[in-house]
Computed example of a mutant assay.
Amino acid sequence: MTIDRAVLMFAGFVTLAGITLAYLLNPWWILLSVLAGLNMIQAAFTGFCPAAILFKRLGLKPGSAFR
């Protein structure tokens, strides 16, 4: 698995977790999904993604978006 795919998988998981928690527990959990979306937008413009840095340190192979 490359860093790019791991970041996409993690972002999808965080988004779905936020929606699920908002539905089951408290509507304020929707902010988790909002933060994940905002992070994806800023990463598209800047190339900086904290999750990509973490996955790189864990030894995943670089992809074309995050090196």
Rank of each mutant, 00 (worst) to 15 (best):
I30D: 01
I53N: 09
L32Y: 03
G12V: 07
P62F: 05
A65M: 13
L24G: 10
M1I: 10
G47P: 01
L54R: 05
M40P: 01
A52H: 05
I19W: 04
P27Q: 06
S33M: 01
F66V: 07
F48E: 14
N26A: 12
K61C: 03
I3G: 00
W29I: 00
D4Q: 02
T2P: 00
I3T: 07
A6P: 02
F66R: 01
C49H: 09
F66Q: 01
W28Y: 14
F66E: 01
V14W: 07
R5E: 13
R5T: 12
L38W: 07
L35F: 12
R5Y: 10
A44L: 13
G12W: 09
P50H: 02
K61F: 01
M1Q: 10
R67L: 06
C49F: 03
F66M: 06
V34E: 01
A43Y: 02
M40H: 10
T2L: 04
I53H: 08
A52R: 05
P27H: 05
V7W: 06
L24W: 15
F66N: 02
I41W: 15
W29T: 01
A22K: 04
R57C: 09
M9I: 14
I19N: 01
G12D: 12
L24K: 15
T20P: 00
L25K: 14
V14I: 10
G37W: 02
A17R: 00
L58C: 13
